[in-house]
């Protein structure tokens, strides 16, 4: 069982070139901010290292931080054997959001990433099947959970607003 600081230490030792930042001033849990394009390498390490052994991705959520003109993704990881948890965050640009996919490592990430793509338009590089998941495949009005999203008046001849 390790806490976030110890895990950060292990990450820094293993990846001296990458930047990590621990943020723990806000309630309730601290999280580590890392680079979106190497999140797959970091995840591989977290998953394979026997002392960390993060075998399960519990949650993956996209967030639109419109004030800072960026999109971010939160990863909630857990080890079912060692019973410790970790929150990772990556930040990407709002106009060309690109994040490395972690589907290879945790298969369960597949639909979570598709959902983040559907709702926010975050592109997951190397994702096997990046399509819309909840909205219709032919939805043209953009990504609904973005804060500046506007709903269309009609979809396939059906009036959408009340």
């Amino acid at each position: 069982m390790k806490n976030t600081e110890e895990i950060l230490q292990a990450l820094k030792e293993n990846f001296p070139d990458f930047s990590f930042e621990l943020k723990s001033d806000l309630p309730v849990e601290g999280f580590i901010i890392c680079n979106p394009l190497v999140i797959d390498k970091i995840s591989h390490f977290l998953h394979d290292n026997p002392e960390l052994n993060f075998d399960s991705l519990i949650n993956l959520s996209g967030v639109d931080e419109i004030k800072a003109n960026q999109l971010s993704v939160y990863y909630h990881l857990e080890s079912t054997e060692l019973k410790h948890k970790l929150v990772l965050k990556v930040v990407t640009d709002r106009n060309s959001p690109e994040v490395a996919s972690v589907t290879d490592i945790w298969k369960g990430a597949n639909w979570h990433e598709r959902e983040a793509y559907d709702m926010f338009g975050i592109k997951f590089l190397n994702h096997p099947d990046l399509r819309r998941i909840l909205m219709p495949y032919d939805w043209e009005a953009g990504h609904p959970l973005r804060k500046d999203y506007e709903n269309p008046e009609f979809y396939q001849g059906m009036k959408v607003p009340f």
Partner: peptide, 9 residues
């Protein structure tokens, strides 16, 4: 009815 962007009213 109000915020359901994907719900037929």
């Amino acid at each position: 009815w109000e915020h359901g962007y994907h719900v037929l009213k």
